[in-house]
Nucleic acid binder design. Sequence first.
RNA 1: GCGGUCGUAGCUCAGCUGGUAGAGCCCUCGGUUGUGGUCCGAGUGGUCGCGGGUUCAAACCCCGUCGAUCGCCCCA
Length: 483
Amino acid sequence: MSDKKPKNRIYKPKKISGFPEWLPEVKRAEQKWFDEIRRVFESYGFCPIETPSVEELDAINAKGGDGESDADKEIYVIERLHKQEGDKESRLALHFDQTVPLARYTAQHFNDLVFPFKRYQMQRVWRGERPQAGRFREFYQCDIDVINVDNLPLHFDAEMPAIIWEILSSLPGMENENIQIRISNRKILMGYLQSIGITDNKKIIKITRAIDKLAKQGNQHVIGKDVDKFGGDNNGFILLDDKGNISTPSTRSEIDTEIIENITNFIEVTTVKYNSSDELEDALTNNRHFDTSNQMLKEGIEELAFVMDQLSHLPEGAVVADLSIVRGLDYYTGTVYETVFTDDPSYGSICSGGRYDDLASNYINKKLPGVGISIGLSRLFDRIRLKGNLPLSGISPADILITLPSEEARPTVMEAAQQLRKNGLNVETFHSPAKDKKQFAYAEKKGIRYIWFIPTEGEANHSVKDLTTGDKFSTTPQDWKAK
RNA sequence: GCGGUCGUAGCUCAGCUGGUAGAGCCCUCGGUUGUGGUCCGAGUGGUCGCGGGUUCAAACCCCGUCGAUCGCCCCA
């Protein structure tokens, strides 16, 4: 009797949370998305670049200015496993978006770039946050940005959503999704806060986040009702009731009642979505609560109205002005975008961006305003995939599998394969002589449509069988064309 | 960083109130099938996430730990 085989210790493979990977058929579908996105980007004249996965940590942190920002925690820093005492090397960090690398890139290659610099970039980015539905630690973003020297025409602010709309409505599997691009302009909120006397940066951040949250939770949520619920040290100080109205300041309030009232007025306006520039201007300009003599507020309204006008050719509801969109990243200074599934806004934005006045000012002594938008490809893709709406077209990209009846036939098989490839077909040859059953089953499983037979003795022609229909054709490698 | 749920074959899971593990799929082989997709049969595969405790006895109870997942913060 045989002894028990010694078991070799196996390192059992595990999923790494937040780092998705796909089977071939899904990856093929993802590649088609990349192809389509690239096609549209290039059709508008954007050119490709790729930056390293890492930036120097100092360079990434340069944008904040404040030093300790929330973004710090999301960054992965890399180090050598075998680093030694006293090794001198710059600290490298995986980039968490493509905007900061773009700023650095633009500054670094300033002399060699043609402005306005229009580039697209489709790479992975990394965020050190806790994964959950639609949230990854490693994911793809597809960015387009335009950067110019000194001034950047507002026209570009309108071009971004137009491009995005074109892409989102052409990606395979997205046919039945209801998507909306929501646009605002930070100058409106900033100008408004300025006009009611709020200038403290920390207060501004809290207010913007409260407004942001309010909109995303569909007015259901309460900020600060249970202060601790909203994350230990991040004390919400704006208290909203279930209808989304600011009620009383919490015990930790840093803000007085009059201002609360003012913000309530503002929120009334922000929770409406405006379909046209006229609606928007009516609501804001003629609102007695707004001091439109404030220059920044006025500019914001005008800019947003301009952008809306430029986008009036898009279908109704595709793009709306939504003043609750304020965006977390603090480098945005004007137009801001978010994109949501209208039937499930809480899934999060699938496509965001905005305008920044001088993102590169930390890297170069020039004023380089830009505007850009980023498709959260992984989040979008995963949603469509999980809904089962992703069109899959087989594991293999091969159109044809040539059977190998015997080892002697291999040269003929190879020759036929080469000829077919020259004609633009993807061809795989079966790897070893085997029963037809095995070779057929292989083609079937890999989703290869045609099986090719070289001539048997006495036959002049090759033959092809279409597995989807069962039809068989007599032909030659030179002549055959897939129907 | 915080909270909820979960962790049994490669995958999806079953395993009643504790008595030392099962199904389907996958995979391999054989048969059937006008050259494959069907059907039938056989086989491979698990120290029940890991560690400790309670017990005569634990996949099942307790503690810890790790992992996954969902949510909060934040964000694509």
